[in-house]
Each structure stands twice: as structure tokens, then as C-alpha cells.
Design a protein around this nucleic acid. Structure first.
Lengths: 201, 201
DNA sequence: TACTTATATGTACGTGGCGTCCACATCAGT
DNA sequence: ACTGATGTGGACGCCACGTACATATAAGTA
């Protein structure tokens, strides 16, 4: 009962348009990633599923991480905008909810956690991940927080980048090391703890 | 110039005392983990280095994760006690400093990050990690925070488990996704943000 | 002491991914 | 029509996986 491995759609021997090949590959990687996670993603399997030769894969994507990451962003639409209604407390909770939804309920969330996991032992992937994703998201969050700071909703002496870790970083931690679940109460508490402080006033 | 792979110290054919074998294995795993990280840790290599047969390894440790985790805790002494001087602000900063030191400067810190990483795709390892380590550390942190709460240093309506994520979880995030470094200022800011709140008073 | 059971040993096997190489085919631009 | 970049199938050696087998011996039992 060996897996049929789907339909490779064999091609002739010669060259095919680079864009066409590239599109086939990314589509395949995205599909495999969403269906099976990044654990079983191998050059060998991608080549078979996409009907593309390994040689080609190795030429375009230097590491499995680069391949996975590239496929991930073609499969998953981030759609994680930072709204600005003027109410920083509500905006943060909203954004955290959207983020948690993507990570928990939407396809691809688990794949991103796995990519972060693999980046612990794959420097190329770590660099790619930071450059293409986390760094940008950290910047966007920082921007929204800075607006709030300039509006006087956050004290001027606070380093907003630390807040990013205490909000999204804390959430990532619960996702990566699930001793405790990410609930709506948790997300609300994250924001309240920071805005109000936890010491008696 | 193929690696000599150290000295396997060959044994005869029959059975050796189980404890002796077990000790050899854990010692070897710990050493490999500290020297090379968990990426290149394989049953094959452990068997060779420890002078033990693969069959034995598979019998005692069901997965690579179980093996790595077992070796890790025999190699690294956590030594992460939670002091109680009565000053929760100082105690938290102290503990975070000790934690950051272990993770950054001491051998084994990187290994733990890699184990967390691999646990994203290895359910057995994830379970073992939570059971043997993270859950216990979360509990200890919670205890110290609860003492502070009962002493009136933290408001009664605060969920102390959320604080664990906003302190250690946030730090883990910076270690796992190093867009920003874990500095002493960062650790201090984590505590201050929560205790004082970030909104103008 | 003799016997039994649990366990470690060497060895080998098939599977499968890795990363690289080759000769050949064909697209794309001049 | 020519040429170079790029894709193709195919094959290679290496290594780790996970399993199996027959054999050897330590530890527990009678």
C-alpha cells in the first residue's frame, strides 16, 4: 500500500519556462505545508509532486528552509493589519485576536510554528524568517505602539519593542510551549496587565 | 580527514549491567548535546560514541526527543531557584538574569532552544518537555508570584500565569526569534512595565 | 549450584532523503 | 539561426532510520 503520491504530470525532457516551474513548485510546497506540516517536507517529495527535477530545486532554493518559507508566504495571506481606531487598548486586543486566530484556527499557523522550530537548527532559515517575516511584523507593531505613545496613551519612557515581546512574544510562547492554552481571557489580560500595571495603585 | 569519532571502547558480545549501559548513554548524549547541539544527534552516532548497540537505544528510548531530553537533564543542572527576599521587583529581575545567563552563556541553553524547536514536530518530545521541565518551571514561578500577590505586591485580580508568559515567555521569544537581543535593560523593562503599567498614571 | 529470564551484543537488511553530477533537450534573446 | 541559460531524467555514494535475528551473559529464582 505505497502512497500514490498524486499526479506528477510528467513533462518532456527539455527546459520549461522558469516562471511556470517556479509557480508549480511554490503551489506544491504551499499545499504540502498546509496538508502535512513542514516535518515531512523534503526536496525529494516536492520534486515528485511538482513534477520538477531535484536539480532545479537545489538551484533556486539553497535550503529546505528557504523553500518552505517561500512556499508558506505564497500559501498564507498574512492579513494581519494593525488598525488604529485611536483606542490603543481595543486595537491591541483586536490585533492579538486576529493573530491568535491565524495561528490556531487558520491553516498555516502550525506551519509557521514549525518553521520557527526548525530555524533553531537551520541558520539560513532563521535569517530568512527574520528578514521576510518576523522583523517586518515587529516593525508594524512598533509603529502602532509608537502612535499611541505619541498620543499620550503610553508613557514616553517605555521601550515599545519590549511591549511587542510581552504581547505577541508571550502569545508565541504559549503556542510553542503549550503548558497553558491561548484563550481570549489570556489575550485581554496581556493588554490589561501592561496598560494598568499589576501593582496596586 | 574523516572524524575519528572518539573511542567507542568496544565491549564483548553479551549483556552488560543495564545501569552501566544507561549511564554510558546519558553521559554520551549530554556531551554530544553540549558540544554539537541536538541537530546532529542521531541514534547511530550515540550508539557509536557510547559503545552501545542501536537495538538497546531503541529499546529504552522510544524517540530521539526522549533520548535528547533525558541526556539534557543529566548534563545541565537547572539551578534556577526562585528567591524570596520579600522584594518582588528585585527577585524577578534576579531570576530573569539567572535564566538569561543559563540560556545565553551557559552550555546547554542553545540545546534547550533546539529541543523546544524540535518539539514543534515531535509530539513525544513535546509531551516529555512539558512534563519534565516547562510545566514544573511554570509552577515554581507561579508560586513565587502568588506569594507576592498574597503580600499585596500584586493586585488580587491578576492571573499570575499570564505574568509568567509576559516575563519568561517574552524572553524565550527573543531567544527563539532573535530580532532583538536579550539585554539587561530588556529584563528590567519587562518587570517594570508590568509592575508599574505603561499608561500614564 | 543450576536454571531461567531479561537484556545487551554484532550484524545485516530495506527504505528513503541528502546533495551532487552528468549528458541531453529546449526555451529565450540576439 | 545561433547561443547561452536553464530544465530534464537518471544515477551515484553517503548516511540515518527502524527492524530483525541469532548469540552471549548478567541477574533473579529454585
Amino acid at each position: 500500500m505505497t502512497e500514490p503520491e498524486a499526479l506528477p504530470e510528467r513533462h518532456g525532457r527539455g527546459r520549461r519556462p522558469a516562471d511556470e516551474v517556479r509557480a508549480d513548485v511554490l503551489k506544491t510546497v504551499g499545499a504540502l505545508l498546509l496538508k502535512e506540516g513542514s516535518a515531512d517536507l523534503t526536496f525529494e517529495r516536492v520534486a515528485r509532486h511538482a513534477g520538477v527535477s531535484k536539480t532545479t530545486l537545489y538551484k533556486w532554493w539553497p535550503s529546505k528552509g528557504a523553500l518552505a518559507l517561500d512556499g508558506y508566504f505564497h500559501a498564507v495571506q498574512p492579513a494581519l493589519a494593525f488598525h488604529d481606531t485611536g483606542d490603543i487598548r481595543a486595537d491591541l486586543v483586536d490585533q492579538l485576536r486576529a493573530f491568535a486566530y491565524i495561528m490556531i484556527a487558520a491553516p498555516g499557523g502550525q506551519a509557521l510554528l514549525e518553521l520557527i522550530g526548525q530555524s533553531q537548527t537551520d541558520p539560513d532559515l532563521a535569517t530568512a524568517l527574520r528578514t521576510l517575516y518576523t522583523s517586518e511584523r515587529r516593525r508594524l507593531a512598533g509603529e502602532r505602539l509608537t502612535v499611541a505613545q505619541e498620543a499620550g496613551q503610553i508613557r514616553a519612557d517605555v521601550d515599545v519593542q519590549v511591549l511587542v515581546d510581552q504581547l505577541w512574544g508571550a502569545t508565541y510562547y504559549r503556542l510553542l510551549v503549550p503548558d497553558e492554552p491561548v484563550t481570549d481571557d489570556f489575550l485581554v489580560a496581556l493588554v490589561n496587565n501592561l496598560l494598568d500595571g499589576i501593582a496596586p495603585r
